[in-house]
Design a protein around this nucleic acid. Structure first.
Lengths: 354, 354
DNA sequence: CTGAAAGCGCTTACAG
DNA sequence: CTGAAAGCGCTTACAG
């Protein structure tokens, strides 16, 4: 008999012999309702198998300032195509966003750069599928997004809310860590001098060593390898040359520790070490960044690395986005939040006794 | 100036100097519209930064019985909460679905069981966010979904389209593989006799051995450990007892190879072996199912395993769902497609020369 | 080809 | 404590 007709709040009201207003109030747990009505409404809901239509609910509550329309937020990898999907730190990002969404009764739409035309907005935005976005990318033009609620997680900007890893502090922390282990000649190596994160880490490192009056430009090896962002790296960078330059330094200047801009570079360095028959930790200590578990542990000796707080960054970003969506506009001032991580100690650093 | 007021279709209409109806028609690419109006509407949309409210759109189109076109498909883990997120084979599923979506210019909404009330539909369905769903779960009641386009990927049903791994063939293939390596007494071990996949694998195994007139019930060790689906397993099953029963068999009946219902069980078996000082491969060969790369390779000797074709299953399922959405209804007959995987050889199987 | 208008299912002042 | 009613932003017959 069921004509498959949708059961609405009206049907419930009729059956419970109250007005739709009352049903709505019961459904939303309002205060001060006749217990008798509550009971009858709940019974009617059950009998009828009523389920609310959230589209209508959203619409109805539009009168207040909530900007939630779709109940979806977008997580966009603005510069990376989906060939990167599955890379550990990126997974951390998207999982943290999905978690926050679950907690807010929303859904996440993950979008890679695959279908985005040069200079265009991601399609989930163009198609109006999301109420706001979290954008990852170091070169994003945020202004493009107009007044869409937005949080950036890798490029900072004074215009919008950002949550980014504190790379400068990370660089500083690692340098200080090595210093405290007795190292005095600490090198920094980097294979992409145009990478903002790598630069920030370098600045933190430099800052600390300058403070200790131990910064030595000869120990900095930054060169610029062209990194393809539309293709994940499949091989470690070749660090033979920069390593050789360091080893060719006079004994008294040669570093006792090397900080690499990330774990991948460290892995490349390990290979160069093997070639030069230098043993890690014993002869030269190494610390990386990212703390890619599988990579760090597969190296021998296992690589000590600074864990960039990917999850926290994305989770915090999502919280801020929801705040933008749920709070009155004037409560949302643009701001940049820097999130610190921590060093995960493994076996690649030796303590130097003085 | 802008009081941050939401820009609606009405604003666009005013600016473009047409009615809201016309704006709506332009936005939905209706036929027969004055090109001039199209142009003005599009300009107004752009100038105003208008974005449609999909909640309102859904509500508005409620009147007809046509299918809602959100451009999203749902991938629902009907019985698993998000604590399972990140497990390798599940990731394969969702990634393959996302890939198919990208190819169709759509988006995927992944939903875990966290927010689903007992017996209810997933919220992405309740909220009308998706045009169809792919459902994973061995106990799903598909009828609940009404006439929503649907593909099942773990429980088969005559009513709907399904794409599932061919577990029976997998069991058969592994038994045959061992047979061809010279094994004649092949055991099957399983720690959850209520798991449909495990049963199917068993049936395939049994079928082959019966055909070879070598099926021996004493070599089958199936017991039923209660498996919590709301919590991923954190420890391997304890296989000490069933192994002991096998080892206590008279020499002439003792198996030379054991098939375990999955890789986790194999890992538990390895532990039991160590305790009993039996060496894998050398004394007893082992083959698992799932081919969990990290697990198989971390065992010693590395575990040979049947790779369940997770990716293909999910990808094929997504294709079928899109076919349902894009083709006339009568072209979509319910059917079940079984997908075969293959054995990935490592070091846990010895060849027996006769 | 287009406008005016009804209606989708809810929420929420407002007036008792 | 509750009902009547306006309104959320769209879609879609309907009548030109």
């Amino acid at each position: 008999m069921s004509l498959n007709k949708t059961i609405t709040i009206k049907d419930v009201a009729t059956k419970a012999n109250v007005s739709v207003g009352t049903v709505s109030r019961v459904l939303n747990n309002a205060k001060n309702i006749n217990p008798d009505n509550i009971k009858r409404v709940n019974e009617a809901v059950k009998d009828l198998g009523y389920r609310k239509c959230s589209a209508a609910q959203l619409l109805g509550s539009k009168k207040n300032h909530s900007k939630i329309r779709t109940g979806n937020i977008g997580f966009v990898f603005a510069e990376l195509t989906s060939v990167w999907q599955g890379h550990p730190h990126l997974e951390h990002y998207s999982k943290a966003v999905e978690k926050a969404c679950r907690e807010h009764g929303c859904h996440a739409i993950i979008e890679w750069a695959d279908n985005t035309k040069q200079g265009e907005l991601p399609t989930c935005v163009l198609e109006g599928k999301v109420d706001g976005v979290i954008v990852m990318g170091t070169n994003v033009d945020y202004s493009k997004y107009g007044n869409l609620p937005l949080v950036g997680i890798s490029k900072t900007s004074a215009e919008i809310q950002c949550v980014v890893p504190d790379d400068r502090s990370a660089g500083r922390t690692v340098a200080e860590y090595l210093w405290n282990k007795g190292h005095r000649r600490i090198s920094y190596m980097c294979n992409s001098s145009s990478n903002m994160m790598f630069i920030s880490r370098f600045h933190g490192y430099k800052e600390f060593l300058e403070q200790m009056q131990s910064f030595d430009p000869d120990l900095v090896k930054m060169y610029n390898e062209h990194i393809q962002f539309d293709q994940p790296q499949t091989s470690f960078p070749d660090m033979t040359l920069p390593l050789k330059e360091l080893l060719d330094l006079p004994e008294s200047k040669r570093p006792t520790a090397i900080i690499t801009a990330n774990d991948w570079t460290a892995a490349g360095l390990y290979a160069a070490f093997r070639q030069q028959e230098v043993s890690v930790a014993e002869q030269i200590s190494v610390v990386g960044f990212d703390n890619l578990e599988a990579l760090c542990c597969s190296l021998f000796p296992a690589l000590t690395s600074y864990a960039i707080p990917f999850k926290q960054v994305a989770y915090t970003a999502a919280q801020k986005l929801f705040a933008q969506l749920e709070n009155p506009p004037d409560e949302n001032i643009s701001s940049t939040e820097l999130i610190k991580g921590k060093i995960v100690e493994r076996e690649s650093v030796r303590t130097i006794k003085s």
